[in-house]
Design a protein around this nucleic acid. Structure first.
Lengths: 276, 276
DNA sequence: GCTTCAAATTCCATTATTTGGAACATGGTT
DNA sequence: AACCATGTTCCAAATAATGGAATTTGAAGC
């Protein structure tokens, strides 16, 4: 398959999305906005809560919600709060099992895990976020699945910065124009300028680091995956807790990580060819 | 949360869905049909393939597909075939991690796994299919995730038949009116009448068996999870290969499985109360 | 058991979006 | 170079979505 960067259209159009030109996906877009609000809310929402968060009249929103429910994309709890529906799970299972990029990457990231003994992530850029497509970790069966499919901001993760490094500066600026750089930890990058500066370093070094920028106590070394024509912005990383694995160790792994990512890039470009 | 049976609306309306009254979800419904066609196709589809499978004029379908792509629900490969988009993965990850039914069930199915040593599944009815919400299995890290979110027909799986047994006969008939009973193996039930007859036995016994009805060489014992007002039709099962675990062993486990399911039912009814 | 009030749901004339046929572009192949 | 299959754009007509207001529901207080 040959994944393309998804999310708010492709990179070129990404800027004029959001509020200015309200993303012309018509009725579908409005329905997805509802799903997005529900997905992003920490606590369950009732109808009135939705109403206050979405700029739509009662009747309209009500019908949209009803349609989403009828389609299995949303379900109603007994206490009249809403949750994402099971049909989304079903779709995602198919999306994942058929994703050729992930499939090609699997043996490669497994090897990287065996070499380092630490958790390895494979992530791909979707809009301004990184979605984790796969991971390999030591023991741990619990929370195993919850990680896959999770999205994190690109600007504060190793994989995210690696992925962004495959994109031109000005496109990165456009893409992240609407993103607020939330300070998750003391080392989180403060804004787009600092990020662009770091991307230059990443392009030179071929690896990126997350220096506890997203979660305190967790750092990682990552490297970008290049696809021939830039239709895919992705990266892989080795992640570890600071207390067990010092930065020096990550730096020692950097060459291995970069080489592994290069190998994956080659495989992807060979096997996800146009006209396979 | 307190999951309700999703899919083609609730059970009462399920019958008049599909073709007769073409499921009045308007534009959204048509968009989801496109996703469904792509999700259900074994091989990648190009635009013309889609066109032949969906009864829509060129221009219309083209705009629908474009909207789906802009929303990140679909992506285009370099060879112009379509796949489900990463945004679905992201939604599903949230849906799963927030699902309280699954959360409540986790320790319980884990215990069942420890007692039997075999694979345990937790499934919930969505339309006419069973979606696997969770599973616990022995070793195996590979393909771990692909199973979760997968859907199988309800009529030929242990969990599916258990879930259906919590629903009145006539509602089951309505629900399955449009389903074709595909003969996956020699023992697959031939039709709805045979199924209803078996559901009677299941209600009496409190457990259901999948006697290699879905996959040759695989059988299982399952039991239904009852929710107070029938807003949730689910089941759990212990699955094993025939060559290693004989039917007699499954029968010995039946009491344990039934008891475990009863325990889960109690927890669910206590903790997913209306007005939590 | 009755009243109250907020929340959810339904209704329908108006308005905006989707539709669909046909013309136009593209790019790979003979 | 011409062809053919596939993908893309356009716009008047048809259809579906909109949104304000009325109605129903149901939980908590009197």
């Amino acid at each position: 398959m040959d994944a393309i960067v998804t999310g708010p259209a492709n990179l070129d159009e990404a800027s004029q999305a959001e509020k200015d030109a309200p993303r012309d996906t018509g009725t579908l877009g409005k329905a997805m906005d509802v799903l997005e609000v529900i997905a992003s809310s920490p606590e369950p929402l009732r109808f009135t809560d939705l109403l206050s968060r979405i700029d739509q009249p009662r009747g309209t929103l009500h019908r949209q919600v009803k349609n989403l429910i009828d389609e299995g994309l949303l379900f109603v709890n007994r206490d009249q709060t809403y949750e994402l529906g099971l049909r989304l799970l079903r779709f995602a299972a198919k999306a994942w099992s058929r994703n050729r990029f992930r499939e090609i990457a699997e043996p490669i990231i497994r090897k990287l895990h065996e070499a380092t003994g630490e958790t390895v992530h494979l992530g791909i850029l979707s809009g301004t976020e990184v979605v984790y497509l796969d991971k390999v970790e030591s023991r741990q069966t619990v929370r195993m699945h919850s990680q896959i499919g999770n999205a994190s901001p690109a600007y504060c993760t190793g994989v995210g910065k690696a992925a962004l490094s495959t994109i031109d500066d000005d496109k990165v600026r456009k893409l992240l124009a609407k993103v607020t750089f939330k300070k998750h930890t003391p080392t989180t990058l403060p804004g787009v300028d600092a990020l662009i500066a770091e991307l230059h370093q990443i392009r030179q070094a071929g690896v990126s680091y997350d220096r506890e920028e997203h979660e305190p106590g967790i750092h990682c070394v990552a490297a970008p995956v290049f696809s021939r024509d830039g239709h895919l912005a992705a990266g892989l990383s080795v992640t570890a807790p600071v207390f067990r694995v010092p930065m020096v160790q990550l730096q020692e792994w950097s060459e291995l990580v970069r080489e592994t990512a290069r190998q994956l890039s080659d495989e992807v470009n060979a096997r996800l060819s146009p006209r396979s």
